[in-house]
């Protein structure tokens, strides 16, 4: 296990290094941020001065090594527009995104598992077909379109749901949370549901497919032949086998949900990191964009590691490190 983790951490460092190169050079070839945020009165001398201040006059490879050495000290640079460290900006915005993503995950599992189980148990019923059709639609329709239609329906036409913002928040250990106030919850439901749809579709399909396989397994028949209660068979004997693929896929998917909450956050004006990224791209705030992308890569690497560890806990046949017994 320890050997496995060390190996993975080393791999992760290589991945991160490659990503810094791609991201840094990629972002630095587009546009000139100075033109965007320098005031209109700024003359050539002022522009040159600003460029020198930001270190943009130096060769790109030199800029990269400055960036890299700062990165090793945990410094991802200051945001051009806000003037404060990019990392602290990200962490300031991250709780809102995490809240949204975790609610979406909870919804995906909370609705997806029961629906998938039901569809797996009664595969030929009309309701089951409806569930599968729903999952297909949820998976295929573009997220922004669903978001807009939801706003149009529930906010504009029916007036039931607020269209934008987080609503009232409560301060818990220095982080603002919406989910703890009624108003906040009210604001959270639509964006979280929109964000959860793709995950929910995946959960439904995986659960149904897993059910169809597991309930016909000999060990389930054997459990029945031993008189074990159906409820216990379903919640333990079937479920534990079912969860293996779901955890794997959702773990991967969850990183994507956080990273690409961009669309949902933009539509619902949810003040998370995704919204921040869009704003940063709008003004070519290079350090912030780079910092965000590096953060996302880092998060994916960590999530993958967690999934592997969780996987080995769920499936006793998997032993990390490859020394099979």
């Amino acid at each position: 296990m320890a050997e496995f983790i060390i190996k993975r951490v080393l791999q992760a460092m290589v991945v991160l290094l490659i990503m810094t190169v791609l991201v840094f050079f990629g972002v630095n070839v587009i546009g000139n941020p100075v033109y965007i945020f320098a005031s209109s009165e700024c003359d050539q001398a002022c522009l040159t001065k600003t460029i020198a201040e930001l270190g943009l006059d130096r060769p790109l490879w030199e800029q990269y090594f400055v960036f890299l050495s700062n990165l090793l000290q945990g410094d991802l640079g200051n945001s051009f527009t806000h003037g404060i460290p990019a990392l602290s900006l990200i962490f300031e915005r991250l709780p809102a995104t995490l809240e949204l993503a975790i609610c979406a995950l909870a919804m995906a599992l909370g609705f997806g598992l029961p629906l998938g189980i039901w569809a797996g148990l009664h595969p030929d019923t009309i309701i089951s077909r409806c569930i599968m059709a729903f999952s297909m639609i949820a998976f295929s329709l573009p997220v922004f379109w669903i978001g807009l239609i939801m706003i149009l329906t529930f906010s504009v036409q029916l007036g039931w749901m607020p269209a934008v913002g987080r609503g009232d928040t409560v301060d818990v250990f220095g982080t603002e949370l919406s989910a703890l106030t009624l108003d906040g919850l009210h604001h959270l439901v639509m964006p979280a549901f929109t964000l959860s749809l793709i995950m929910m579709a995946i959960v439904i399909r995986l659960t149904r497919a897993g059910m169809r396989e597991v309930i016909f397994a000999d060990y389930i028949k054997f459990a029945r032949a031993n008189g074990i209660r159906e409820r216990r068979i379903l919640t333990t004997h079937v479920m534990k086998n079912l969860l293996i693929p779901i955890v794997t896929v959702l773990g991967m998917e969850f990183g994507g949900v956080i990273a690409f909450a961009v669309v949902v956050e933009s539509i619902f004006s949810w003040p998370g990191v995704g919204k921040m990224l869009i704003d940063a791209i709008g003004v070519l705030d290079r350090p912030l964009i780079v910092a965000y992308l590096i953060f996302v890569v880092f998060m994916f690497v960590v999530l993958n590691l967690l999934v592997d560890i969780l996987y080995s806990l769920l499936d006793p046949r998997v032993r990390l490190g490859g020394n099979q017994t």
Partner: peptide, 24 residues
């Protein structure tokens, strides 16, 4: 259900498949 396993028990063909792989 109460009869199964208590008064009529079964043993299956393939021992590789009759025990649940993820439960102790």
């Amino acid at each position: 259900r109460h009869l199964r396993g208590r008064r009529i028990a079964m043993i299956f063909q393939d021992p590789m498949m009759t025990l649940n792989p993820v439960l102790r």
